[in-house]
């Protein structure tokens, strides 16, 4: 019994340092701005890996590509410019990236995932605003960017035909 008491004492001593694990005081939010309205950070949700940067220039690797259903590929800058246009113009009402655990292939610092996405967006330039719904699946290749200490999207391909809000050449209907 004394042995157990001693051992428990050691554990308690180590555990009382819990103040070190408490979060720091937080400022009250100034507004409701969401910096990642398309929620790319959530495509690694549940994998134990994390996209810590939420700016679209940081989420995508420098040589990242978007590949459409016809295998046309588009460079990162074109994709990021397009996404920034999208979030300026559209109000994103719903966005989800459904996890398909069967297609997750972690290999060292590379990660292949397939996600089914659902996006509902309103074109705020139209009067009244026009609502769009996008449902498709996408294949992602992600690599760990040690410089930025985050996972980056290296390759983003729409899997099935259909209009995609992520396509750099996407144009809303008029």
């Amino acid at each position: 019994m004394p042995k157990c008491i001693f051992l428990l004492s050691v554990m308690v001593v180590m555990s009382v340092s819990c103040g070190a694990f408490a979060p720091r005081p937080t400022e009250y939010p100034s507004n409701t701005v969401t910096v990642d309205p398309l929620n790319f950070a959530s495509i690694l949700w549940g994998t134990g890996k994390e996209i810590t940067k939420v700016d679209y220039n940081d989420i995508f690797f420098d040589s990242a590509k978007f590949v459409d259903i016809n295998d046309n590929s588009y460079e990162k800058q074109m994709l990021v410019d397009h996404l920034q246009d999208v979030i300026r113009r559209f109000a994103i009402d719903e966005v989800s990236w459904r996890t398909d655990s069967l297609t997750d292939f972690p290999i060292a610092d590379t990660f292949f995932v397939d996600r089914t996405y659902h996006v509902v967006a309103r074109d705020t330039l139209m009067i009244p605003p026009k609502s769009y719904q996008f449902d498709n699946s996408a294949s992602f290749k992600l690599i760990f960017n040690a410089d930025k200490n985050t996972w980056n999207i290296f390759y983003f391909k729409d899997k099935y035909p259909g209009k995609s809000i992520f396509h750099p050449l996407f144009q809303p209907d008029y």
């Binding site: 937080t26 400022e27 701005v33």
Partner: peptide
């Protein structure tokens, strides 16, 4: 897992 942004510009995402 607790993600805690400190500054007011980001803390809405905590």
């Amino acid at each position: 897992n607790y993600r805690n942004y400190i500054k007011k510009e980001m803390s809405g995402n905590n």
